[in-house]
Design a protein around this nucleic acid. Structure first.
Length: 549
RNA sequence: UGGGGUGUCGCCAAGCGGUAAGGCACGGGAUUUUGAUUCCCGCAUUCGUAGGUUCAAAUCCUGCCACCCCAGCCA
């Protein structure tokens, strides 16, 4: 067979295994899984794991299950499973099956009894505190539990009673019988089942004992037929236990293999469900899908295309180095995708009226929908000689190198004419109220006629007669405070993370199709731009309805 | 101080004994009806460090240093 070229260390491992014939017994069919716990919404960090697994599907034809790792009923809920499914589908990742760890509870219980019968597990009556105290430390071995050598019969009886609800929470646990002196603390007789009289969102009151991650996860993998269990670095220490659990359960080879990679970190970006949940619970944002959130649904609502996220993850690569990717790299991917795909539209956030004194009547102009896609496609826009421009695009006293409109100077109204500012009307506070210009008919956009009239800059505009009033919201993602990284993030949110503008836009933009991101054509909307010395990053302006749907 | 990992440009990251890919960021220039895009050009004599093996080392060996993870009845 011909193997795909490996682009990272995981694929290298897979190629080597394939070459060695490790999976011949299963027809070289591989299987992976994406196993979030449904206790929160997926964030951009999860996109990495998702894409790595998806790559195995695309490159090796591996099966990819979306598995809800729901073994802790206290934290999980349907709201989260729904949001996870929605996010995965929005990303355009096709999984083979949606499965639930909770569907394996019976099987898991069976295996636990097998452990007991074979002397690999015992019921322990020590309290949580006592277990901690007898676990030893990093440098000293633990002490064996006095209940470690109960008979199989007694263990079985006790475990069945645990299951039957005879004991209260915390009274007893089932522990794997491994090695209290292991230098790897995870191997010091880890708890594999605990009592929790908590109803499960899917199983209801059927169970009052629940399996722990270290027991459940490897078995879920083995039961499903997963060949490669990809997870993050912090589980490296668990791998010996992962292997032990599967081996003692007696699954035949080839058995699943856990491979760890570095999770995604982004500068200034909150990447912990715990903090994100706090922001939601304490009302700092409108919800998990608020456009300022680094969740997949938040990014979607901010107008970030799924392809941008995938490109980002692919650009960043997969390795085992602990790393923090500069958020500028994400910004670049978003810009890149928007530049390639987004339709261009004009809008004005802070409108100022501009009247062309020598223009009469009205006309339709051609506006290029996307100058970068090579299609040359245009749409018509109406022009009546009276428009709104952005307050920022006019300066009474222009800063150095200013390229936009100022008194006595020329500027091009995008897709229309070059105009010259003759006069300005100020209100009683000295604020610009209206701008009066003359236009140069021979400078009509696309005109064959050569004109001597030049303009340094191009600004956008919205026709005063045909434009629509619209509410814009501008977002910056919620950023961690660099100065106080350990402070309570929620207390230090960027107060400027959401700004609302009563602006104007072309009727085209507000015609009900605004669920797609437009690249609004103006400095700083969403693009990399240098405005004097100021670079605006990570901002996007969307119509209000963009995130309310 | 036990164990498990990782150290290649400001940030990611290739490299797997034959003489340092690429992306982001940054700097310079050209085109441009988005100060965008595009386009050139520049950006590690050096791979945590000290030795060793070799004709040849980021790649092999040894010592040292730094950082991360592990003592939940969370995942």
């Amino acid at each position: 067979m011909s193997l795909p070229e490996a682009t990272n260390f995981i694929e290298q491992i897979i190629n080597e295994e394939l070459e060695s014939g490790k999976f011949e017994s299963r027809g070289n069919e591989l299987q992976v899984r994406f196993p979030p716990e449904p206790n929160g919404y997926l964030h951009i960090g999860h996109v990495k794991a998702l894409c790595i697994n998806n790559a195995a599907k695309e490159k090796y034809g591996a099966k990819l299950n979306l598995r809800m790792d729901d073994t802790n009923p206290a934290k999980e809920d349907y709201e989260y499973v729904n949001s996870i499914v929605e996010a995965v589908e929005w990303l355009g990742i096709k999984y083979d099956k949606l499965v639930f760890a909770s569907d394996y509870y019976d099987k898991l219980y069976e295996i636990a009894e097998k452990y007991i019968i074979e002397g690999n597990a015992y019921v322990c009556d020590l309290s949580a505190e006592e277990i901690t105290a007898t676990r030893g430390t990093l440098t000293t071995p633990g002490v064996e539990s006095p209940y470690r050598n109960r008979s199989v019969e007694e263990n079985l009886k006790l475990f069945r009673e645990m299951k039957a609800g005879v004991y209260p929470d915390g009274a007893k646990v089932l522990r794997a019988k491994i090695d209290m002196a292991s230098p790897n603390i995870n191997m010091r007789d880890p708890v594999i089942y605990r009592i929790a009289h908590v109803p499960h969102y899917r199983q209801g009151d059927k169970w009052c004992i629940y399996p722990m991650y270290d027991f459940a996860h490897p078995l879920e993998d083995a039961i499903e037929g997963v060949t490669h269990s990809l997870c993050s670095l912090e589980f490296e220490n668990h791998r010996p236990l992962y292997d032990w659990v599967i081996q003692k359960a007696g699954f035949p080879a080839p058995v699943p293999r856990q491979i760890e990679f570095a999770r995604l970190n982004i500068t200034n970006t909150l990447m912990s469900k715990r903090y994100l949940k706090k922001l939601v619970d304490e009302g700092f944002v409108r919800g998990w899908d608020d456009p300022r959130m680094p969740t997949i649904m938040g990014l979607r609502n901010r107008g970030v295309p799924p392809k941008a996220l995938k490109k980002f993850v692919s650009d960043v690569g997969v390795a085992k180095n602990y790393s923090v990717v500069d958020i500028a790299q994400l910004d670049e991917c978003i810009r890149d995708e928007l530049n390639a795909e987004a339709e261009r539209a004009m809008a004005v956030l802070d409108p100022v009226k501009l009247t062309i004194t020598n223009y009469e009547g009205e006309e339709e102009l051609d506006f290029e929908i996307n100058p970068t896609d090579g299609s040359g496609a245009t749409r018509k826009i109406k022009f009546s000689g009276s428009v709104y421009i952005d307050r920022e695009d006019f300066a009474l006293v222009p800063p150095p190198k200013y390229k936009r409109l100022t008194k006595g100077a020329n500027v091009r109204l995008k897709a229309a004419y070059i105009v010259r500012c003759d006069d300005v009307k100020l209100d009683e506070n000295g604020r610009v109220e209206e701008i009066f210009c003359t236009y140069f008919p021979e400078t009509r956009s696309g005109s064959e006629v050569k004109s001597d009239v030049k303009a340094k800059g191009v600004i956008h505009w919205v026709d005063a007669k045909y434009g629509r009033d619209v509410e814009f919201r501008q977002y910056r993602p919620l950023l961690k405070d660099e100065q106080y990284p350990d402070q309570d993030y929620a207390e230090r949110l960027n107060a400027d993370s959401e700004r609302v503008f009563d602006g104007k836009c072309e009727p085209y933009v507000a015609d009900g199709e605004n669920d797609k991101p437009y690249q609004l054509m103006r400095t700083g909307y969403y693009k990399k731009c240098t405005d004097g010395a100021k670079t605006v990053l990570s901002e996007i302006v969307t119509l209000k309805s963009n995130f309310n749907k």
